[in-house]
Write a protein that binds this DNA or RNA. Structure first.
Length: 291
DNA sequence: CATCCGTGGAG
DNA sequence: TCTCCAAGGAT
């Protein structure tokens, strides 16, 4: 096994162009890296930065977070989106504190067993925090590999086994190099090989990119349609939760009812929030963030 | 495996 | 305005 054909160029590019993100600094704890990865799930770096700083200042260790009620995590999460992540991060803190002596586990399988941590995040923490050799396959890497290797503009909508195999085949043999490679390809996708307007002129592997060499053929097949948001239960959930987040005290049912006209949809959304553990229905008929 | 789960910014 | 997309995970 030897390093893949891109690694030297990509690693050199990363050396010069990497962003100075706080969770990449040498002094960043494994826990702070884990927190950043949860926050970064489907959320842009620029929005995570201030949230991560405030979060780590308030709760520097998993034990600090674990002794808070989960509702405080939901409140602190503010408007980062997908608030179930806050709940799972809190559950993660509890598990790390109670089952692993307050230390973030360093093996992939154990990380994978923690709440809110899937294949990508487990690999990311094992690689970025502990320098291990794991394939990093996030939306950025998928796009880079789709273009450079497969020669298509966009990766498939859902991740395939072929993509996983490809990412693993490109992994440099030495763990420390592999870890560096993973974050470097991700950064290349985030800064150069972007979804809308890739800056091929600035790309260190443009000369070896199958998609570019093929003349950048446009995406084939049906348009990659994302779900619409307006009018969905997600929007209603967001409005309901915002009321609770912004109130120090439990709120009356009336205070929740005003945020959405359609009563059927509103009740469905509220029930779902309760079911998810994001909202706590009190005995007196009011509602609060979970205690 | 397809769908659901928030939010905000860029083009 | 409207569409697309941003370090995914759980079911």
């Amino acid at each position: 096994m030897s390093d893949n054909p891109y690694s030297t160029a990509v690693l050199a590019w990363y050396e010069t162009n990497a962003r100075d993100l706080p969770w990449r600094r040498p002094e960043a704890s494994a826990w702070s890296i884990l927190v950043s990865e949860i926050m970064l799930q489907q959320t842009p770096v620029v929005r995570v930065l201030p949230a991560w700083r405030a979060w780590m200042e308030r709760w520097p260790t998993p034990a600090d977070l674990a002794r808070e009620p989960s509702g405080e995590a939901v409140r602190m999460w503010n408007r980062l989106g997908y608030p179930r992540r806050a709940l799972r991060l809190h559950a993660c803190a509890v598990a790390v504190t109670e089952e692993y002596g307050g230390r973030v586990p360093d093996d992939h399988a154990t990380l994978l067993s923690l709440p809110g941590i899937g294949a990508y995040t487990a690999a990311a923490v094992a690689s970025f925090a502990f320098g291990q050799r794991h394939a990093i396959l996030d939306t950025n890497v998928r796009r880079v590999l789709a273009r450079a290797e497969t020669g298509i503009q966009y990766p498939p909508k859902t991740q395939t086994k072929a993509e996983t195999a490809l990412a693993e085949s490109l992994l440099p043999p030495t763990p420390s190099v592999a870890a560096r490679w993973g974050v470097a390809v991700m950064e290349l996708g985030a800064l150069v090989c972007t979804a809308r307007a890739p800056a091929c002129a600035d790309c260190p592997i443009a000369g070896q990119c199958a998609w570019r060499l093929a003349g950048k053929p446009a995406h084939e097949g049906p348009p990659r349609r994302g779900q619409t948001y307006a009018g969905t239960d997600r929007q209603v959930r967001g409005k309901l939760l915002a009321v609770l987040r912004d109130s120090v005290h439990p709120v009356s049912k009336d205070a929740l009812d005003v945020v959405w006209d359609d009563g059927v949809q509103r009740e469905r959304a509220l029930d779902a929030l309760v079911s998810d553990g994001l909202v706590d229905p009190l005995d007196d008929g009011r509602y609060a963030l979970p205690g």
